Simulated assay, not measured.
Amino acid sequence: MSATAKTLVLHLGLLAVLFALQFVLPAYHHGNLARIMVLASYAVGYNILFGYTGLLSLGHALFFAAGMYGMGLTIQHAGFTPAPALIVGILAGAIVAAGLALLALRTTGVAFLIVTLMFAQAGYLTILYFGEYTRGDEGFVIQAADRMLWGIDLSDPTNRYFAAWGLFAVCLLLCLRLIRAPFGKTLVAIRENEERVRMLGYNTFAHKLAAMVVSGTVSAAGGAFYGLLFGYAGASFASVQYSIFPLLWVLLGGAGTVLGPFVGTLFMFYLIDLSSGVTTAYLLIVGVALVLLTLFAPQGLTGELRRRVWGWLP
């Protein structure tokens, strides 16, 4: 079997397993997995910029929140139905990503990280400042009556699971298609040696700009769906914590691998969930586990599988 066929079987097989789990999981894990798939979609967006393009950002919470609030505020204050509200949220993330990219890509390295963090914090403070509309730290609930998409009640656990699965499937297959296309291969080349790519005649700024817009758009889709499916939008989702989370998920799962964001999100979600049930000092357990993984699996869980066993993994 060729590497392409193996890749398709693996990724489509994962989606088939996730689809089938809807019918067998108990209620608690059923809800958890729906949440994990939405957050993994967010991590897929982050991985496009960090894992494949090599740009370390601490500002992705800005895109996640742009999608969430773009969707939520139009439902709350403009009376939009979920379908156009989702489109507004995703477009909001794309526009914010494009604007930030035009400014942040004038810098490199640590300066790029600081600029993205600065703008993300500005976005967080903006949400707090306009608390009259956003409800600030308290946030606001999106009522079940406002979460009907084409007659489908997204507050229902089964419908919510399938919507989360659909979002994750689109993001996963989009990433797989992207990195196998010439554009994706150019991004990887930029990550490895940008100067050489520039010498070959490629416009590296345009490629990085496009990568940041795609990354921000996918992240915004994650934020918009998260708010709609779970019925809540709050300023905490725009905080620096939600910029660090996707970085950890991608590093744990394997930066620059298509499956890495899902594996990392799944691992960290249940690591926190299980350790918090054992002790109130669960962050100590999480920290020790992260240090051990960093020492013994520096390329992440999926990255180590690619290095040691399946060299064909994208």
Rank of each mutant, 00 (worst) to 15 (best):
G131D: 02
A101L: 01
R160P: 06
F119K: 15
W150N: 07
A97I: 05
I95P: 00
L174C: 14
P157M: 02
L176R: 13
P157T: 04
F162R: 13
T134C: 04
A144M: 10
F112K: 12
N159K: 01
E132G: 12
G184K: 08
F168P: 00
I127S: 14
L113D: 13
G109H: 06
A104R: 01
I127L: 13
T186R: 02
G123D: 10
C175K: 05
K185A: 06
L174Q: 02
L154P: 01
G109A: 02
L125E: 15
G99W: 05
L167F: 10
G151K: 02
R135I: 08
A111D: 12
F140S: 06
E132W: 00
F112Y: 11
F162T: 15
I114E: 08
S155Y: 00
A164H: 13
L187W: 03
V96N: 03
G99T: 11
G136R: 03
G123C: 07
G123K: 05
L167N: 14
I95Q: 00
Y129E: 05
L178G: 01
E132A: 13
L125T: 10
R180W: 07
A92T: 02
I90E: 12
V170H: 06
L149P: 12
F112R: 09
A145D: 14
E132L: 02
I127E: 07
A111Y: 11
I114C: 14
T134H: 01
S155I: 03
G89H: 07
F168T: 15
G136A: 12
Y129T: 15
E132M: 01
P182F: 00
I87H: 07
A122Y: 12
L103G: 14
D146L: 07
F162W: 14
C171Y: 07
L100R: 06
I114T: 13
L176S: 02
I87R: 13
N159F: 04
L173F: 06
P157R: 14
F168V: 09
V110M: 06
D153T: 00
I179R: 10
V170D: 09
L174K: 04
F112D: 11
G89E: 05
D137G: 15
T158H: 08
Q143Y: 14
A92I: 00
D153W: 06
I152T: 07
A145Q: 05
G109V: 08
G99Y: 01
W150E: 04
L149Q: 11
G99Q: 03
P182Q: 00
C175E: 15
A169E: 09
A122D: 04
D153H: 00
V115H: 07
L172E: 07
V141A: 12
T108E: 11
G166N: 06
A145N: 05
D137Q: 07
A169H: 11
T108S: 06
L125I: 15
T158M: 08
D153E: 02
L178F: 05
F162K: 14
F119L: 15
P157H: 00
P182M: 00
L117H: 10
M118F: 09
L103I: 11
I179G: 05
G123P: 11
A163Q: 04
F162S: 13
T186P: 02
I87D: 13
R180L: 13
A111V: 15
E132H: 02
F183K: 12
R135S: 12
A122E: 01
A104C: 02
L176K: 13
L173V: 15
A101S: 03
